[in-house]
Structures are given as structure tokens and as C-alpha cells.
């Protein structure tokens, strides 16, 4: 069943359709939250995102644009969480990897994930949306509230940073 049909049925009040929508999109939502935050916070933020989605769903006017709308909500929830924590921890954590659990980091370090988690938030976000969530440049621009040209330049910078980080990691592996 298409997302648009599921959204319309959920807006009508069919709980089964809403559950189906959660099943279909929980993975991408969690992956986005996880790439921006650590695993524990990803669970909390994913729940916040789904609560906001359920509350906002009756007002969604374009069911065909569910994915960008969903990630706009997800981005807001992640940004709020990061802002809250940066407020507490001051700006000293800026640019550090989000994962601070050494065991967890050790598990992931071998792959792309660790390099990704080391990127600054702005570049990481656009990489996750474009490559992992498979959204178009236009959708990324809508979600991040920036022009498509800015998304392209962030993508280009993010790719460069990622390449540099992977090159740094390579001799150690």
C-alpha cells in the first residue's frame, strides 16, 4: 500500500493504517535520530517524533508529501534535543563525536557510521537525509529550511569531510 493511501486512511481515523505507517517509517526515523544522537536518546527522540506525528497528522494537507513532513518534525525534535544539551554542556562539545560510550564506539568504528558520527551536525544531517533516507535535494531543502543550493554545498562539504575522516581512519584499521 502506498504511503499516501496509508496517510489518508490514518487521517480518517483507521488505527490499523496508522500502525502500518509506524511500521513502515519507524526504521528510517530511528536511523535518522540515531545518526544525529546516541542510541538511548534516539529511542526517546523517536518516541517524541511519533507523538508529534500523531498529533499533527489530522492537519497534514498533502498526504503525498508525508516523508518531508515527517523528517521536518524529526529534525525539529533532534534540534531541540541538541540545543537543550548544548545549552547544558556549553559549546565545548561542538564538533566532537556524538557517541561517547567507548564500547559502543569501538563496535561501530570499523564502518562508515563512526566517521559519520564525527561530522558536524549540519553536514551529518544532510548526509543522513540525502544518502540514508534517500530524500531528494528539494525535500532535504524543505526539511532543513534552506535553499537547494545550500543543501548541495553542504553535501559537497560533508562528502569531503567524510572522505578525509575515512582516510584518517584507514591506517589505523
Amino acid at each position: 500500500m502506498t504511503d499516501e493511501l496509508l496517510v489518508v486512511r490514518a487521517q480518517l481515523g483507521e488505527r490499523g493504517a496508522l500502525a502500518e505507517l509506524v511500521r513502515a517509517w519507524h526504521g528510517p526515523v530511528w536511523t535518522y535520530a540515531r545518526r544525529m544522537l546516541d542510541a538511548q536518546r534516539a529511542d526517546d527522540v523517536a518516541q517524541e517524533i511519533w507523538l508529534a506525528v500523531v498529533r499533527g497528522l489530522p492537519r497534514l494537507r498533502e498526504p503525498g508529501r508525508f516523508a518531508p513532513w515527517l523528517f521536518t518534525i524529526a529534525r525539529r525534535a533532534v534540534t531541540d534535543r541538541l540545543r537543550e544539551e548544548y545549552g547544558r554542556a556549553e559549546a565545548s562539545r561542538e564538533g566532537e563525536p556524538v557517541m561517547d560510550d567507548p564500547a559502543e564506539a569501538a563496535v561501530d568504528r570499523a564502518g562508515l557510521v563512526a566517521a559519520l558520527s564525527g561530522l558536524p551536525v549540519v553536514e551529518r544531517e544532510v548526509l543522513v537525509l540525502f544518502y540514508l533516507e534517500d530524500l531528494s535535494v528539494e525535500d532535504c531543502a524543505e526539511i532543513c529550511r534552506v535553499p537547494p543550493g545550500t543543501v548541495k554545498s553542504r553535501l559537497s562539504r560533508a562528502r569531503r569531510l567524510l572522505r578525509d575522516r575515512l582516510a584518517e581512519e584507514e591506517p589505523r584499521l
Binding site: A19, V22, R23, H26, G27, W30, A42, D43, A46, W50
Partner: peptide, 8 residues
């Protein structure tokens, strides 16, 4: 990841 059923 928390399973989708738990989130539901």
C-alpha cells in the same frame, strides 16, 4: 533499535 511494535 526499539521495535516498531513497541513504539506502537
Amino acid at each position: 533499535r526499539m521495535p516498531a511494535e513497541e513504539m506502537i
